[in-house]
């Protein structure tokens, strides 16, 4: 990853990925705050979704699905590996595209019904 943080973005906060150890800037190149590692897409359970405050859990959150907003934008669904908490967050421009694509096609590779039953959709 590039170390050239645009001078307009003076926020140099970083966090370390709980999964792969990558040091990640808290703000993506597009200036958006990120909640997951761009390399392995894992997140960390640091916020309590119900209460709104910080969470004591702090376990890794694995990316499990992609949801599509009305706008057509992809959202990444995370699932806490310890407590099962679920979150939804926008993807970032520098997120690993291979993992994103793998998540998008994985259910289709093992459908619960034969795809041959469908003609042209």
């Amino acid at each position: 990853m590039s170390n050239d943080i645009p001078s307009s973005v003076l926020r140099t906060t970083t966090f370390q990925c709980v999964r792969c150890g990558l040091t990640v800037t808290a703000f993506a190149p597009d200036g958006r705050r990120r909640n997951h590692c761009p390399r392995c897409l894992y997140s960390q359970h640091v916020r309590d979704q119900v209460e709104g405050g910080p969470s004591e859990c702090r376990s890794g959150m694995s990316p499990i699905a992609i949801a599509v907003l009305r706008t057509g934008d992809w959202e990444l669904i995370h699932n806490c590996t310890r407590c099962g908490e679920l979150t939804s967050n926008p993807i970032c421009g520098d997120d690993n595209q291979f993992i994103l694509m793998r998540m998008a096609v994985r259910p289709l590779a093992q459908p619960p019904f034969p795809l041959e039953t469908f003609g042209d959709l």
Binding site: G72, Q97, P111, F118
Partner: peptide, 19 residues
């Protein structure tokens, strides 16, 4: 409904990858 399930699973690809 298998078709509803399939449409839902296809949605990310139908919307197009954001890259």
């Amino acid at each position: 409904n298998a078709l509803t399930l399939l449409r839902l699973a296809m949605r990310p690809l139908a919307a197009g990858p954001p890259f």
